[in-house]
Every structure is written in C-alpha cells, then in structure tokens.
Amino acid sequence: MDIGIIDYFANSGKSLLHRASPLYKIISTVFVLSSIVITNDLIVLLSIYLMLASLVILTRLPFLKIISIAAYPAIFAVLFAISSWNEDWIIPATIILKALCAALAMVILIVTTPYPSVFSSISPFLPRVILEGLYLTYRSLFILLELMGNLLRALRIRGGLSPKRYIKNISNFTSGIGLLLIRGFDLSERLYGVMQVRGYSGKIAEEEGKRKLGQEDIFPIAFGLFILSVSLGARLEDDFKLYGIYLLNLSIVFVCCSAYYVYFHNTTRGVFWKR
C-alpha cells in the first residue's frame, strides 16, 4: 500500500504539475482517460504511455516508483488478456497498455495533487455524505496504516506469528483486523470530533483563486487536449494512422527532452518549470 508515499509526493513536490490547479489537472486527466477509451491503436496507446512517462519525469519524483505504482492493474489486465487470448498478441497487448495508460494518468494526478484538493475540486458534483466519507476514508487510511504496523509488531513480539503455524497465524491476524476496525473507528471518530471543533462543517475549504486558469494550468490542459486530439484523429481518420510511427517518435523525443531538462537541469537555464 503506497498511500503514505503518494501523499508525501503530492504534498512535497514543487514541479510545474504540482503547482497547477487541481481542477485543471482533473480536466486534463479526463481528456487523457477519454483518449484511452476511444483509441484502440496500439501505437497511439504506446505513444500516450511514453508521453505520460515524460510527465512523470517532469514531476521530479522517483520515476520507477511511480511507474511501479501505476503498474498494478497490469496483473488483472494480464488475467483478462489471457482469457481473451486468440493466438494474437496485439489484442492482449492493447488491453494491458490501456490499463497501464489509464492507471498512469490517474497516478500522475494523485502524486501531484493532495487528495483533499481533489475532493475539494469535485465537491460541487458530490453529495455531502459521499464527500465527507471520501475525506474521512483518506484520513482513516493513515490511522489504519499506523495501527496495522503496531498490530504486526504486537503479533510478532507476543508470539502471534510463528513459522509453519499458518492457520493460527491467519486466525490471529484476522482477529487483528477486527481490532483495527474497532480502534480505527474510535480514532476516526475522535478525529471527526476534533475536525468539527476546529470549524469543519462538511465542506473542505478551498484556497481562493484555485479555479481561475493560471499560467501553470496551461501546460496540463494543453497536454490533455493534445492527447485527446491525437486519439480522436486516430479514431476518426483512417489516414491519421499512417503517421503513427511519427507520433511514437515524437513521444520518445518528449521523454528524452523531459529527462534532459530534469536530470541535467543545471546545464539549462530559464526553463519555466524549474521555478
């Protein structure tokens, strides 16, 4: 479970994407997701994945860590791909790539935007109980992870986890989940009480001006629109597909340029995302 590290990335990063408004990052992500839904062209998908990878580089966060976080759905996509295997590797590859692209787009959003900001941006579209539930779930995850660490430590030092006693171990651990539920509930309830005492009334306060389109928002929006138009072009115009190889090359150039600017930034000056 990487929520702790995801939260750290979202809050500690200072890249252009981190500074962009959550609302426009969400819109950009929706564009990218729509592109993934409408395109079935493996080259376009591969290009989208590489472009997203270049975004990951631009976030200045650990590249491989983020790629691996976003690789999780591949496990299930592989299962699905196997079940639809027909001596043709293109279709399974397309399925897996779709899963990877969508996951990477979501992960980029969430490692550059703290959860509360995401919730705040989508709050106008959600009922209060869901919004509060989302927020408390997010907070509770941290409570739970700490409790889980404590539980595992307690089980270990008190003989609750022993080698080769699998049934006993499972029984101890699962009872422990019951304990986590009870203790987590108490702590979550206390937290909710404190939040209310400190002025929380079911709405997460949003910073002023976050909805206005700023200079930093142009990049994610432009990126999302570019991906969407490429996918639409590939879907609607047969001739567009002929230029797929150029798109793939372009995405490789994207990756190289991003890597150059981020990893060799000392040699370049005046790059606007270095601020």
């Binding site: 479970m1 509060e132 408390l136 995850l141 739970l144 979550s188 309830e189």
Partner: peptide
C-alpha cells in the same frame, strides 16, 4: 461518517 471512513479504509487496504 467516521465508521464509513474506517470501513472504507479497511476495504481499500
């Protein structure tokens, strides 16, 4: 609400 929070968190984990 806190119960929704912790139960959902357990499900997510």
């Amino acid at each position: 609400i806190p119960l929704i929070g912790i139960v959902s968190a357990i499900m997510i984990v």
